[in-house]
Every structure is written in structure tokens, then in C-alpha cells.
Nucleic acid binder design. Structure first.
Lengths: 337, 337
DNA sequence: GATGCAAATGCACTTGTGTGCAAGTCTCAT
DNA sequence: ATGAGACTTGCACACAAGTGCATTTGCATC
């Protein structure tokens, strides 16, 4: 017959009727600093308790800011991404924000529709963790007074804030680490999903090696995953002279690479092979791996994000670069000296 | 001086003025099946495009259902939890829902405040992935016409839907697996965070072993983590007669356990030790582990969840149990026969 | 008892939507 | 030309909140 009647959420009016006061009184009871007598306040709270009333933040958001922050993210199952989402949600919540999450692909259209949804829900800010939004959409976000923050997306987009890690430093340090260990034949393992961050690490590593007179074999066998790192190792060591010093632009690639090197080719680390990763995922510290890598300072980045969101939108957007911190473990020989 | 003026989101009225039509026309243009002439529709769309207008779903949610689903989750960085969140967000989004995520602790107070926030934002449904809400709060959720769905929380709470995995089957099968492999000295490794699911797996395993005349050493050294599994192995093998068949109630525990067994005690799997896990996290399939385990059928669970949300709230709540699927890898000897 | 002042209260408007209803316009056939 | 009928359009209200402003109440002081 008729659409089964959906029980409505209890509203301030219902509470007011029950308590025998005006709706304004209810509103004031739940507003700090508003003027209500102790008596009515008591009546309102009692009625609210009995009915299970909760202030509708959506309606409140019509007049003021919504306090909603949208997180646009792809590849959520990746350990590093899960950590980032975890840290961000914690810190944002602590700052009184409410998080809306959009799990999207990295292709332009997915990101575009995510961005639009962000606007539909009047989010105060959109934080993009993966994928790259089009310049035009960012523009409409800004036109609507919405802040846009890109994390680890090193794309030259104007108008939005940009938090990222110092990829150049990582590429440089990785090289020095391997050279100090006495490695002769260098390789770099990356993914076919060539994001700006990964490309930057690759570029700097290859460039600085070249300056030092060393060639680098670059290998990419698939997306940023364990399997792809594994495959890259099979290909590299399948040749006559495999590398003895490798920089994997991601820990996940590094772990796959390490497993293949050990189990398929019987190599021992760090004797036959030195390996450097990037990200510092939990798995890299497991007893089977003990990977030397760089940690992303997510906590600091999240703190900075919260600070940004407190500022007015007008504040000029810019880039902020965070220093990765080297984590010394056992996949690289200590200095040959 | 004055609070820096926050540029407002563009509203339907602004679009109407620009297009030279009434606000209703704008509303109708963005409503399927509403009656608008081709001419006005064109004008509206043009003005909307120029201004970057997006319908405010928050305001729309005042009249109808909000389409918001809240995910309450703890320990997001855990691989299994990250996978669950990933699958759920994907499927819910595909069903037209918008996901609000609340990253909380497992203690009662954290969960309570998460639940309250859920109500504040008029979520159509709350999905609890970890932690256990109090019966009283569930009641107020229901009183507000909000659905409550618990995933893998085997607590006896009335009024809410309950999706979970068949833990009894897992405990039983784990035992048979180990017995068939000829194991003599059984142990069970769990965590100190004794959730109902973990307890259930433990209970059944121990019980059925007892029926078969075999004792089981139960060990818990900390939370559900790699480190805690590692520690449990150290304790168990530090004694005179370590176990030769172990069921870890979680893959993460199993991987830590395996690493300690290998690297600290030089054991080889599956010769000296057979190991069964539960969850089927990606890491278990890595070359260093190849863990035999049970996969949680998250896709089916998510599909069922979406189906539930389509039904009216009135539909009587109940429990639905999903069969885990055994994943045979290499940490258990094939049958001794 | 009248006056003054502060605290409490309620009315009405605001926010951005969707939609029922009535009035308006346009087309076509009689 | 006129009426029927279909299609458009705008007004006004509903949704759930917060708040400025005017009014009422309470209480103390003269």
C-alpha cells in the first residue's frame, strides 16, 4: 500500500511540546551562553533525554559552516594510505571536524565526481589524498568558498594548499646510502602508476647517480603493490648481472622485491643486495624484512592541516614540504669504511 | 577587525536571479521528472555552470532521508579493518549512500560519543565495525528511526542487525586441519582484547579438542597485533615442549608468531610447526609467509548490508551468519595419510 | 505600591531545499 | 472564436535549527 511510514528524527519542536516551553527555549538550552532559566533548562533536558533528542547539525550547518571535511582517497587498503587516513581522521575529529570519506579511483572522472559530491554536502574543505583533480573543479570549489588541500600530490595546481614530503631529499639520501654501502650496480624500482611524487624520487635518484658517474636501471612492472615489486625483482635478476643496490620508491614494492630476491634467487641481504624503501609501513619492521626506509611525518602533516583549516579561506595557498625521517634497519650494509 | 567574510556557497536563489527565472524552476531543473520547459532548463543550467552551483544535499536532507551512513570503526590501520572499510565504502557509495567515518577507540565512552554524533548528523544508518555500543544508545538510535548494523560484533544486542562470520565453523575446521596434519601439542594464540568473535573461535577450538582428548595451551600477550603474536611464540617456545600445531585467531597474530618461530627458534614450517590463521589479509599470501587461513567474505557481507539499508526500518532485526572460506596455503602439512 | 532594571521568553525571520496547489500559457480540435 | 486539455510557472509552506528584537516576568529598591 502506502510507503511504510519512516519514523522521523525527533526535533526541537517535539521536545518543546513535551517540556511545555517554546521551541526557542530548546534551542537556547543547547547553545552555549544563551539566556535560559535554570527551571526551563531542566525541563528541556528532561524531555530531551526521554525522547532521545539530538541537535540536527545538518540544519545548523545551513546558517553557519558545516564543519564537514571531505577525504578523497583511492587505494585505501594500501598500508600507507590506511595509516594516513587513520591519522587524519583522528586529528580532524579532535579539532571538531566531521569526516566524510569518498573512496574513489585515481582516474580523472572518479575524482571529479568525488569533488562534486564534496560540494553537494557543503564541506568546509576537501582533502585529496590520491588522484588528481582537474584545475577547473578546484576553481569551482574555491569559488564556493571551499578550501582544497592536496596531500602528497605534487602537481602544480594553483589556489589550493599543498602538503608534501621532500621527495628530492629522499632520492638523494637513498643514493648516498647505497653508495656508502659500496654498491656498484644500481637499480630503481617504481610503479607504472607514475604519480608526481614517485617520478620526483626517481628523477632525483637517477640524476644524482648520473652526476656521480653511475648508471641506474629503472624498472616498473605494474601498480604500486607487493606483486609488482616481486615481478620487478624476477626481471632484474633474470638477467646476467643483477643489481646490488636498489631503491624502491615504495615500501610495498620493496617488500615484494626482497621476497623475490631471497626466495627465487637465494640472495641474502644486506650481503648480496642492499635495499632502500620509502614510507615506513609497519610491515617493513617485521622480523622477515627489517627494511631501511624513510618515514613520512604524517602526524606533523595532519597538525598542519588542522591549522590550515582554522584559517580563513582567503589566506594565500601555498606549498609546505615536510622532511621524511630516515629509518635505519638492516637491509643496507653499514658504511664500507 | 570584523571576522573575515566567508564567501558563501552559491544557492539556488542566486542561480535563479542570474537566469531570470524563479527559484522553483531551478529546483525543478535538478529534480528528476519535474516539469520544466526546455528553454528555462537551458537557462538554469547555463547560469548554474557559470556560478558553479551544486545542490545542497544537507538542506535536501531536512525533508527527506539524508542518505548518510555512518561507519564507526577502531584500529583502522589493521590490514583486515582497512579492507573492510574499503569494501564497505565502495559498495555503499555505489548504492548512492554517502559515508561519514568515525575513528574511535573501543572503549564504551568513545563508542557512545560516536553514536551520538551519528544522530546529530541524521545518518540513516550506523554501521559499527569495532567496539560495542551500549544497549541504551542503540535504543535511542532506533527511536529516531535510525538503523543500527553491527558487523562482526557477536554481542547479544536486540533491535539491531547483526552480520558476522561463522566463528564456530572456523574453530572447528582449524582443529581438524591441525589434527589431520598429525599435530600432537596444540596451542591457541589470541589477544587480550577479548572481543566476542575471538572468544568464540577460541571456545570452539578448545572445546572440540577436548572432546577429542587433546589439551590446548591458550596464550595471549597483548592486543591483536604482529608484536603480540611474536611475543606469544617466544613464551610458548621458551618452555620445554613447544606446540607443533597452532591456531592464531587472527592473521596478524599468526604472522608475528611465524616470524618468531622461524627467526628466534629456527623452526621450519610446516615441518616443525603447523599454523592456521584467520582473516586472509594480503600479507599472509606474501612469499615469506604463505599462511593457511580463512577468508572473511566481505563482499557478500557488504552486499547484504546494502540490501538491509534498502528495507524499511521496521523490518525485524536479526543475525546473519556468513561462511568463511578456507584458504589453503603452505603453513599446514597436507594430510598425514 | 510604584518604579527601575535585569533576566527570561516568544515571535518572526534566516539558512536552502522540494513540492502541493492554483493560476497562467500554449496548442489543438470543434 | 471558444473550450478542453496539457504543460509551465510562481507562491507559499514545510523541514530544523539559531538569533535579533520586542515583550513579559521577576525582583529589589525607593
Amino acid at each position: 500500500m502506502s510507503e511504510p511510514e519512516r519514523r522521523p528524527f525527533v526535533s526541537a519542536r517535539t521536545v518543546a511540546e513535551r517540556a511545555g516551553v517554546s521551541r526557542s527555549a530548546v534551542s537556547r538550552t543547547f547553545t552555549d551562553g544563551a539566556s535560559v532559566s535554570e527551571e526551563t533548562r531542566r525541563k528541556v533536558l528532561e524531555a530531551a533525554g526521554e525522547l532521545g533528542y539530538h541537535v540536527n547539525h545538518l540544519a545548523r550547518g545551513l546558517r553557519e559552516r558545516s564543519n564537514i571535511v571531505c577525504l578523497v582517497v583511492a587505494d585505501m587498503t594500501t598500508p600507507i594510505r590506511a595509516r594516513l587516513v587513520d591519522v587524519l581522521t583522528r586529528k580532524l575529529q579532535a579539532a571538531g571536524k566531521v569526516i566524510m570519506i569518498i573512496n574513489t579511483g585515481t582516474d580523472e572522472e572518479s575524482v571529479a565526481s568525488a569533488l562534486r559530491q564534496t560540494l553537494n554536502y557543503r564541506a568546509d574543505a576537501t582533502v585529496v589524498l590520491s588522484g588528481t583533480p582537474s584545475a577547473k573543479l578546484i576553481e569551482t570549489s574555491l569559488a564556493n568558498g571551499q578550501q582544497v588541500v592536496l596531500i602528497n600530490r605534487d602537481d602544480p595546481l594553483t589556489g589550493c594548499h599543498n602538503l608534501s614530503v621532500d621527495n628530492q631529499m629522499a632520492g638523494r639520501e637513498a643514493f648516498f646510502l647505497l653508495r656508502r654501502a659500496g654498491c656498484r650496480r644500481l637499480a630503481l624500482v617504481t610503479s607504472t602508476a607514475s604519480t608526481a611524487s614517485l617520478l620526483e624520487r626517481e628523477r632525483v635518484f637517477v640524476e644524482i647517480a648520473k652526476e656521480a658517474g653511475m648508471a641506474v636501471t629503472v624498472m616498473a612492472s605494474g601498480p604500486t603493490s607487493y606483486a609488482s615489486g616481486y615481478e620487478s625483482a624476477r626481471r632484474l635478476f633474470g638477467r646476467s648481472d643483477g643489481p646490488d643496490g636498489v631503491f624502491c620508491v615504495t615500501d610495498l614494492l620493496a617488500l615484494g622485491f626482497m621476497d623475490a630476491a631471497r626466495h627465487e634467487f637465494g640472495l641474502s641481504l644486506p650481503r648480496d643486495l642492499c635495499l632502500v624503501g620509502f614510507d615506513d609501513i609497519d610491515e617493513g619492521d617485521w622480523q622477515s624484512y627489517k627494511l631501511t626506509t624513510f618515514a613520512q611525518p604524517f602526524a606533523a602533516m595532519a597538525d598542519h592541516l588542522v591549522e590550515l583549516l582554522g584559517q580563513p579561506v582567503a589566506a594565500e595557498a601555498g606549498r609546505r614540504i615536510f622532511e621524511p625521517v630516515p629509518i635505519w634497519r638492516k637491509s643496507v650494509r653499514p658504511s664500507a669504511d
